[in-house]
Design a protein around this nucleic acid. Structure first.
Length: 347
DNA sequence: TGTCCACGTCT
DNA sequence: AAGACGTGGAC
């Protein structure tokens, strides 16, 4: 196949979206934006990106940030290990590289939370190094360009596609070329079988377009069914606020905060009261109110939530729990989006 | 309603 | 190799 980069770059320079991390592509800006953009759309990321940089304008500031403030800056973005790894890496960068990201693909790849894609994006976009940055957009574009039915979730297929990506990459414009491929995937060679081939600078050479197979590409593995998990929660409010606890530092929603909650159990009101009493809480005599049922879908799990809401007298919090005021819940404690249905009651 | 996006990284 | 890990919006 002829080299696609001249037509691709010409299209990119005319059609690229103006994005804050593109207008000022420092290594830190590109790093932060790429980590935020992993599994998350541009429109969702932008407000977080502005707020994060305002609070933590450089890598040393990120390295020094309090964990709770960091979680709060990421609250609602999901995949919270991303922000913990971001700070781990920032601390390493301060200790090993004087607070500046290294202009070296292998050194970037060695940092926590930076995998092949993110290392390639930073190295090519910020440092101009001729390395690949192959994300889902690029895999989709190349699966269609070559009419290749390879299952793109398989590492061997990704490797083969990456080799093709590099055959077309102009070493002097690696960053623009990589961004152009992703931008083409985001704006023109879109998923779900309806690419805008009429606007595509590569339409003439696209083998899937010639074969009429764009809607069947890319091929992917079937997702596994999600596990259904019953969850019971208790919104316990005293004059001091709501009773909350921090989740364990490993696993689902690690380190985030939640109301009193039992996973894998669907409890009746009387059972909830008994559990609260067993924690040492004086629940008084007022009848609890049932909470509306709610569902939250994670990638691999589906929470079916129900529970109760109740007011109790002023008292000390049971071990492992704290009373958090509405103000503290708004400004200091990071609550995952899974509790969105109940947030109006909490905030 | 349910599916897809969404390879991205770590384990 | 395969599973863990969030969220929200498009369709």
């Amino acid at each position: 196949m002829e080299n696609i980069s001249p037509a691709l770059l010409e299209w990119f320079y005319k059609n690229r979206r103006s994005l804050p991390f593109r207008e000022d592509p420092t290594p830190y800006h590109v790093w932060l934006s790429e980590v935020m953009l992993q599994q998350t759309r541009v429109s969702a990321v932008l407000p977080y990106y502005y707020r994060f940089l305002e609070a933590l304008p450089d890598i040393p500031a990120l390295a020094a940030c309090e964990e709770e403030k960091l979680h709060k800056l990421w609250e609602g973005l999901g995949y919270y290990s991303r922000v913990r790894n971001l700070q781990k890496a920032a601390k390493l960068v301060c200790a090993q590289y004087g607070g500046q990201l290294p202009a070296d693909y292998a050194a970037l790849l060695a940092l926590p939370g930076i995998g092949e894609y993110t290392a390639g994006a930073i190295a090519s976009i910020s440092f101009g190094l001729p390395v690949p940055a192959v994300d889902g957009n690029v895999l989709r574009v190349f699966s269609r360009l070559y009419n290749d039915p390879g299952v793109i979730t398989e590492p061997a297929v990704k490797k083969a596609f990456t080799a093709r990506v590099m055959e077309h990459q102009p070493p002097e414009k690696a960053g623009d070329y990589n961004q152009a491929l992703m931008e083409l995937g985001a704006l023109v060679c879109v998923p779900n079988g309806a690419p805008l081939c009429g606007q595509c600078p590569l339409a003439e050479v696209c083998r899937a377009r010639a074969a009429g197979t764009t809607a069947q590409l890319p091929q992917k593995a079937k997702p596994k069914p999600r596990k259904i998990v019953p969850v019971t929660l208790a919104l316990v409010e005293s004059p001091a606020g709501f009773l909350v606890q921090q989740r364990p530092q490993k696993g689902l929603l690690a380190g985030l905060w939640q109301p009193v909650l039992w996973e894998d159990e669907h409890l009746l009101q009387a059972e909830v009261l008994a559990r609260l009493t067993a924690l040492g809480l004086d629940t008084g005599t007022a009848a609890p109110a049932a909470l509306p049922a709610a569902k939250h879908i994670f990638t691999h799990i589906e929470w079916l939530m129900s529970g109760v809401q109740l007011r109790v007298a002023a008292q000390s919090a049971p071990a492992g729990y704290v009373w958090a005021s509405r103000e503290q819940l708004r400004t200091a404690y990071a609550l995952p989006g899974a509790f969105r249905a109940y947030k109006p009651l909490l905030l």
